[in-house]
Structure formats: structure tokens, C-alpha cells
Simulated assay, not measured.
Amino acid sequence: MKVTIKFFAGIAESVGKREHTIQVNQESTVKDILAVLIDEFPQAKDLIDKSMVSINHDFAKLDQKIIESDEIALIPPVSGGEEPLFEITNKPLSADQVIAKVSNNMAGAILTFVGTVREFTKGKKTTYLEYEAYPEMAIKKMKEIADEIKERWPDAKVAISHRIGKLDIEEISVIIAVATPHRNDAFEAGRYAIERLKQIVPIWKKEIWEDGEEWIGNQER
């Protein structure tokens, strides 16, 4: 089937058009569409990686399937700036998007930590988790962690994204990306970041089991 994607702002300038039609199969998803666009417009890869996709005027998830009648648009970052390095969000997280925030021409390594929801904890079967945060303070503490890392590893660049709300088993709860010129520094700084996040960032999770539930502070995980 054929689908048409609308382009705006910097992406439209980069590809030289406002719309583009591609051929995809009946089972294609948003992720598949993005892969095709990056292949056809490699010069716009960075912007495409940072963009959201809307389907029929609503933001879409990467695994959402496309149908031929959909109105699809690529939405680049708004407000004329880069995406924030630190965020608390109720939207699904993407490792590629967080990596793109720290990628730079001085980086010889990018260490990525991805925390996911596991099914069993201390012998108890988890049904799902609920995350809650004090967003303003959490962002401030994430920035403090990045500042601490910069003091120890001056060339490091850090990005942290944490999801809140209901998360099912295997969904991503947190992503930390650390870019450094050398791989040893990336490993050390990445471990430092996740341990400090557990210690000082005000995020809580409720573990919902088959036979009960309990709120747990971030430092207790």
C-alpha cells in the first residue's frame, strides 16, 4: 500500500519537500515508516530520530500499525530547540531518541542503561508497576547527577529519561545515556548515574502483585 507523510519545519527544509509518498506492506508500523524515511533521506536522519509521528492528529507509538487511509505527519522538536536532556514523561521511552541527545563528534563510546519491568521480584510475581514522581525536583536532581559526572569525567554528556504511570511487564521505565571519548569512562559514568538516580531522585513505584501491592522508594529498588 501507499502512504503519504507530511513534513514540517527543519525536516521539510532538509528533504526539500512538504510531503512524500512511500510504498509499504499491510503490516507496517510507525517504526517501519521511520526506517524507510531514514533510508530515503539520510541527510535528515538526526531530525527524524528526534521527531514524533502523528497519525490522524494524535501522537503514535512506534509499534502502531499503519493503514492506507491514515493521515501521517512527522513532528520535529517544537519551540525551536533540542529535546531536553532530562525528562519525566508518561509516554513510552525510546533508547534511540535518548542516545541521539548525547551523540556528538567527540564521543568514542555511548553507554546506555535501559531499566525494564521484570515479572518476578523476591519470589513475588508482578502484574504491573505504577510510577510516580515529583517532576520538578526529579529534573533538578537529574541535572545535579549530570553535573557530578562532569566534575569526574569532564568530557561526558548525559541524558536521563524516566517514565511514570502504569507500566506492563517488559516495558522500559528508565533510560540513561552517557557519551564519553573513551569506553572505560562511559562504563564508569553510566554506573554512577544509575546508582545516584536511585539515591536522590524522587521517583516511587508501586509494585502490584497477584495478591497485594506496595509503594517502594526509588532508593529501595
Score class of each variant (00 low, 15 high):
157 K>H: 04
158 V>K: 03
158 V>D: 03
159 A>N: 11
159 A>E: 10
159 A>V: 14
160 I>W: 05
160 I>D: 03
160 I>G: 03
162 H>I: 09
162 H>L: 06
162 H>D: 06
163 R>E: 05
163 R>H: 01
164 I>P: 10
164 I>H: 07
165 G>C: 02
166 K>C: 00
167 L>D: 05
167 L>P: 04
168 D>V: 01
168 D>S: 12
169 I>S: 10
169 I>Y: 09
169 I>D: 04
170 E>Y: 12
170 E>T: 15
170 E>F: 12
171 E>S: 06
171 E>F: 01
172 I>Q: 07
172 I>S: 08
173 S>H: 00
174 V>E: 10
174 V>R: 06
175 I>H: 08
175 I>T: 10
175 I>L: 13
176 I>Q: 10
177 A>T: 07
178 V>H: 04
179 A>E: 11
180 T>V: 05
180 T>L: 07
180 T>E: 10
181 P>S: 14
183 R>E: 02
184 N>R: 13
185 D>C: 01
185 D>R: 02
185 D>G: 09
186 A>W: 02
187 F>I: 13
188 E>C: 05
189 A>G: 14
189 A>R: 13
189 A>D: 13
191 R>L: 13
192 Y>P: 00
192 Y>A: 10
193 A>N: 09
193 A>C: 10
193 A>L: 07
193 A>G: 06
193 A>H: 01
194 I>F: 05
194 I>V: 15
195 E>S: 12
196 R>E: 15
196 R>G: 08
196 R>K: 15
197 L>V: 15
198 K>N: 05
198 K>L: 05
199 Q>W: 09
200 I>A: 00
200 I>R: 00
201 V>N: 02
201 V>F: 05
202 P>K: 14
202 P>L: 14
203 I>D: 06
204 W>T: 06
206 K>W: 12
206 K>G: 09
206 K>D: 12
208 I>Q: 01
208 I>H: 06
209 W>V: 00
210 E>Q: 14
210 E>Y: 05
211 D>V: 08
212 G>V: 09
213 E>A: 14
214 E>R: 08
